[in-house]
């Protein structure tokens, strides 16, 4: 696994104390204990996301994790598989021109719950149709120079389209997938649109329509008294 040299080690949010939202739901804690018993060292890190358990596993153990979830944890239902690109959103407005309406994201690369080793991450949610609120969020890291991971299709048949989507949107390659081909986009489409460095060209050539004749965006205005939330951005 290759680490990006510029990254700062992420703070594991699971250890932030005294926040009711980082506590695990009863069922989630149970699921975590079972996963730990089954997978052992393959679990790199775990955390909580508002009651749900987030487990980051080793890339080599990605398919085994699915099997364990399906066969030992009663998670028969695949909700989705998707990718994340943790690279900071490129600022279009460095020189003060162009797109000023995009919400400003932090400039440094930080990672979410259960951390990450690099830029690309794959995550999935599996659930049970037999137990109440029984679900697990699984994550795994893909190194920048080797975006390969084992396919889940043999375990969850529904992974087919989700993996095609992740391949199209991020360029992740799923070993053992029957046919990785374009799902949404025309087959001559180039690039991986959900990567953070894929630009939306329309925004660069055309200013946000709401900005043409309007007062400053809410982000720039002074904080007024707490009032009902307004659709500040939509004034046009």
């Amino acid at each position: 696994m290759v680490e990006t040299p510029t990254e700062t080690p992420a703070e594991p949010p699971a250890e932030v104390p005294a926040d009711p939202k980082t506590e695990l739901r009863e069922q989630a804690a149970d699921a975590l204990a079972r996963l730990q018993a089954e997978l052992g060292d393959a679990i790199v890190e775990h955390g909580a996301a508002y009651g749900d358990v987030v487990v980051r596993v080793d890339r080599e153990a990605w398919r085994i994790t699915a099997q364990v979830c399906k066969q030992k944890l009663d998670c028969d239902y695949l909700s989705f598989i998707a990718g994340i690109d943790w690279m900071p959103t490129p600022a279009v407005t460095e020189d003060g021109s162009g797109d000023t309406s995009t919400p400003a994201q932090p400039k440094e690369q930080t990672y979410g719950v259960a951390g990450s080793e690099g830029r690309y991450q794959l995550f999935a949610v599996v659930m049970s149709t037999r137990r109440k609120s029984w679900r697990v969020i699984l994550k795994t890291d893909l190194p920048d120079d080797d975006l390969h991971v084992e396919s889940w299709v043999p375990v969850y048949a529904g992974a087919d389209w989700h993996e095609r989507e992740a391949w199209e949107m991020y360029g992740f390659v799923f070993d053992g997938h029957p046919s990785l081909r374009h799902l949404y986009l025309p087959s001559e489409f180039e690039g991986h649109p959900l990567r953070k460095d894929y630009p939306l060209l329309a925004r660069e050539v055309k200013p946000w329509p709401g900005l043409v004749d309007v007062e400053p965006m809410p982000g720039e205005a002074a904080d007024d008294e707490a009032a009902p939330a307004l659709d500040g951005g939509e004034t046009a």
């Binding site: 949404y184 649109p193 939306l200 060209l201 329309a202 925004r203 055309k206 329509p209």
Partner: peptide, 13 residues
Amino acid sequence: CGGPYWDSYSVTK
């Protein structure tokens, strides 16, 4: 004109 998807990568404007 593309409507709410005026800046999307896949929508014809």
